[in-house]
C-alpha cells in the first residue's frame, strides 16, 4: 500500500502551512544552543535539518517528561478527584530519523501491554511520523547492528529520502501519512527511481552480531567482572535513559497540599541508585554494575522475550550524551565477543 512520490524542498514551506492550517502542530528538530530537541516549528527554515541526530528524542511527544494522571481538589468536606482533560493536539513529527520511527513501534509494544496506557495511546493516535532517511551517520550510530537501517520504514507514516540537494523521494506508508499528504497534494510529484535513493543513504558499519545476542547475554549474567569493568566509569545519572527514544520507565509522584494536588507521571531511570530500593530498605541493585547489567539485559535480552523485539534502535544518543562516555555499541561489541 506504499505510495511513492517526490517532494521538492521548496514545497516544504507550503506543506507546513497546510498542515498548520489544518490545526496540527509540527514538532521538528530545533537547535537550542549546542543541543537539539523536537519542538514546535512554524516553517521549515526553523528545522535543524543537518544534524546527524538530535540530542533529545521525539518520545516526549507521546510520553511527556511530566504529565498529570489525575487531579484532586477539596470542596468543603468532599474531595473531588478528576481526570485531567486528555486532549493532546494533532501532531506531526517531522524530521524524525528511521531509528526514532522504529522506536515508536517499541513504545507501542510497551504501552499496549495489559492494561493499555490511554495516556500514551491517545497521544500516539494523534501523532503522525514523518521520517527523513539518513544520508550521514557518525561513530555513535549503530542502527544496522539492531536490525534497522538508515532507510528503514518501520514505524514511519511517511519516509522522505533525500535524493539530491533539491528534494526527497516520499514513501507514503500508512493512512495517517496519506491524510497528511492530502492536506497539500500539489506539493508532491510522481515517483523517482529506487536506485537513486539507495546511493545517498549513510553507511553504518555493523558492530556486533545480533543473532543469538539475547541468549549470549543471558549466559553472561553471572560474569560479574565483565559488568563491573564496563560500568566503573558510569556515574549513575539518568541521561542515557532520558535521551533514549525507547526507554519508558516512569515514576509516579503525588504532589499537592491539603487543598489540591495532582498525581504526576515522570521519567525514571534504572541507572539511578535508588531505582530498585524496596520499602524494607533492601536494594537488589545496589551496585552500579548490577544496574548497568540490568540496562543491557533489559534492552537486549529480556525485551526479546517480553515484547518480541530488541528495545534499542541504535540511534546512539546515549553514547553521545553520556558524560562518562559509556559507549553502548562498544560495550555490546565487547559483550558479544566475550569468551
Amino acid at each position: 500500500m506504499a505510495d511513492a512520490r517526490t517532494l521538492r524542498r521548496e514545497s516544504l514551506a507550503r506543506w507546513f502551512e497546510a498542515i498548520r492550517a489544518a490545526g496540527r502542530r509540527i514538532l521538528a528538530p530545533r537547535a537550542r544552543g549546542d543541543t537539539t530537541a523536537f519542538e514546535e516549528v512554524t516553517a521549515p527554515s526553523e528545522v535543524a535539518m543537518d544534524c546527524v541526530q538530535t540530542t533529545l528524542s521525539p518520545k516526549a511527544a507521546v510520553f511527556p517528561r511530566c504529565e498529570e494522571l489525575l487531579r484532586y481538589e477539596r470542596q468543603g468536606k468532599d474531595l473531588r478527584v478528576t481526570d485531567p482533560p486528555l486532549q493532546p493536539p494533532e501532531t506531526v513529527l517531522f524530521g524524525v530519523r528511521p531509528c526514532d520511527a522504529a522506536a515508536m513501534e517499541v513504545l507501542d509494544a510497551v504501552f499496549s501491554a495489559d492494561p493499555p496506557d490511554r495516556f500514551f495511546q491517545t497521544r500516539r493516535a494523534r501523532t503522525t511520523v514523518i521520517a527523513i532517511a539518513c544520508t550521514q551517520a557518525d561513530a555513535a550510530c549503530f542502527c544496522t547492528s539492531v536490525g534497522l537501517s538508515p532507510g528503514s520504514t518501520l514505524g514511519s507514516d511517511i519516509l522522505l529520502t533525500p535524493t539530491d540537494g533539491a528534494g526527497f523521494a516520499a514513501d507514503v506508508l500508512t493512512d495517517k501519512g496519506r491524510r497528511i499528504v492530502e492536506l497539500c497534494p500539489e506539493a508532491f510529484g510522481p515517483a523517482v527511481a529506487a536506485q537513486e535513493r539507495r546511493a545517498v543513504l549513510a553507511q553504518v558499519p555493523v558492530r556486533f552480531e545480533l543473532k543469538g545476542l539475547s541468549d549470549r547475554l543471558a549466559a553472561l549474567f553471572d560474569r560479574e567482572e565483565l559488568w563491573v569493568d564496563q560500568s566503573l566509569r558510569c556515574l549513575g545519572c539518568g541521561t542515557c535513559a532520558f535521551v533514549c527514544p525507547v526507554c519508558a520507565c516512569f515514576d509516579i509522584q503525588d504532589e499537592g497540599t491539603g487543598r489540591s494536588g495532582a498525581r504526576l507521571r515522570c521519567w525514571d531511570s534504572c541507572g539511578f541508585s535508588l531505582f530498585t530500593l524496596h520499602a524494607s530498605g533492601h536494594n537488589p541493585r545496589h551496585l552500579q554494575s548490577q544496574r548497568w547489567r540490568q540496562r543491557v539485559m533489559h534492552k537486549f535480552s529480556y525485551a526479546v522475550g517480553r515484547l518480541g523485539r530488541i528495545a534499542c534502535v541504535g540511534c546512539g544518543r546515549c553514547s553521545r550524551a553520556c558524560p562518562a562516555d559509556m559507549n553502548l555499541a562498544d560495550h555490546l561489541q565487547a559483550l558479544a565477543e566475550a569468551k
Binding site: A61, P64, C66, E67, E68, G256, S260, G261
Partner: peptide, 11 residues
C-alpha cells in the same frame, strides 16, 4: 504551575 491548581504537562 501548582499541582491540582494549574495544568502540568511538560513535553
Amino acid at each position: 504551575p501548582m499541582p491540582g491548581v494549574q495544568p502540568i504537562e511538560v513535553m
